[in-house]
Design a protein around this nucleic acid. Structure first.
Lengths: 224, 224
DNA sequence: ACGTTCCACTTTGCGTGCAACTTCCGATCC
DNA sequence: GGATCGGAAGTTGCACGCAAAGTGGAACGT
């Protein structure tokens, strides 16, 4: 009999989760040097699990790890973001197509609920946008998981995580927000009705659209 | 002035390279438990860098690492291999298209040389097939690198490595061997002449064909 | 003033010890 | 007889120490 009580995760994983969350939240700005001793003290462990967590974060593309030089929070240049979205545009439509024929009813319900929540929330303040970003993350994660391909998930793991600051602009632009919500709803319906092509095409459009908007925004000198 | 002498790689990376090569060569069969103490002694280091190497290998999808349970060499079930090739079929054609407009002349020459070598070698013995597999790996790696997308490379890193035993059957089948060589030559020419669509279509066909053959072979009870 | 050299301080990477957990095998009980 | 329990052996994960490489700055020469 397996204990249902969540087994104590190793210290390395706790540090990993904490650091990942901090980086995504923008607490460590790109370029920041992550020194093991300071982090170990800050997180209440020794340097060993911190070091291991940094290796994991490098695998996620969140930090750059040079031998003997230490770890640095990676920056996300315009070109790099374009690259990232281009790869997402290759993978996620396929994930959506697979999800359309495999998603469990519970996940389908959750997808609909996420659409409802996002459409109902019209605020522009920090908290409302943080909600939108969280819902958006869960929406995409749900689809990827429903695709039921471990390799697909693995390939996307290094692409899902970028500091949320880069995504804020989507929800400040009324046009982009409307487009995103429409895409999500269309995706939800396509998956609910089991239409792989519709889901795939919508997801491709969704990501390519986001990519171009992001590139456009970042080309401007400074807006937010 | 920087020293050109290659800086001593950290012990962790040496262990990583060694283990990765051993697993790909089939020296550790799927299901083998990788115990840190034994590996450390075998490789002449302590358990710390071995542990770090195992984390890296997990990122490559070569070992499964469960907390408090240790590391196990991952198996490659038919279904998993189909998954893997499906994702490759999404990513590598795009890499080929990009490579067609970006590859350096030196890499182009190397591609042609690899085709020449592979076409000239007609043996069926172990050594000849090992050569074919090595040339094939370098061929694909050259194209992926020429694509010039760090994110694409990262997404493919977890997909490039499967034990070479799974690839042996390709080169034992005269038909598959002929198809593969033809695809590679076609890819080389498409890239040399700067035709992205041709490169992309050929690569897609190449990978999907390989996938289906692999599935077919593995469906049989036992051949090799 | 600018660049170079040297030296002290900082940080990384690795080795090792120890506690906690898993695993394995034999004894025990029904 | 088969399943269960218990303890010993083995393994993992973490903490800490040390040597080596890196980093920054002051002293120095041009």
């Amino acid at each position: 009999m397996h204990s249902m009580a969540s087994i104590a995760p190793t210290s390395s994983l706790r540090v990993y989760d904490d650091l990942r969350e901090s980086i995504l939240a923008g607490q460590y700005l790109p370029g920041t040097r992550l020194r093991t001793a300071a982090l170990a003290e800050r997180l209440g462990t020794s340097r060993t699990p911190v070091r291991e967590a940094l290796v994991l974060l490098e695998g996620d593309g969140l930090v750059a790890l040079e031998p003997r030089r230490g770890a640095v929070v990676r920056g996300f240049a315009t070109e790099d973001l374009a690259d990232l979205y281009e790869v997402r545009a290759l993978l996620e439509p396929h994930a959506a197509a697979r999800a359309a024929t495999r998603m469990t009813p519970e996940a389908r319900d959750r997808l609909a609920a996420l659409c409802d929540l996002a459409e109902a929330s019209t605020g522009l303040d920090r908290a409302a946008i943080a909600d939108q970003i969280a819902w958006n993350e869960e929406f995409h994660a749900t689809i990827i998981q429903a695709a039921g391909s471990a390799r697909l998930s693995a390939a996307l793991r290094g692409l899902a995580g970028i500091p949320r600051a880069f995504r804020t602009s989507f929800w400040l632009s009324p046009h982009q927000r409307a487009i995103s919500l429409a895409c999500h709803r269309e995706l939800q319906v396509a998956i609910a009705t089991g239409s792989p092509e519709r889901a795939e095409a919508t997801m491709r459009m969704h990501i390519v659209s986001a990519r171009d908007y992001l590139i456009e925004v970042m080309r401007e000198p400074r807006t937010a």
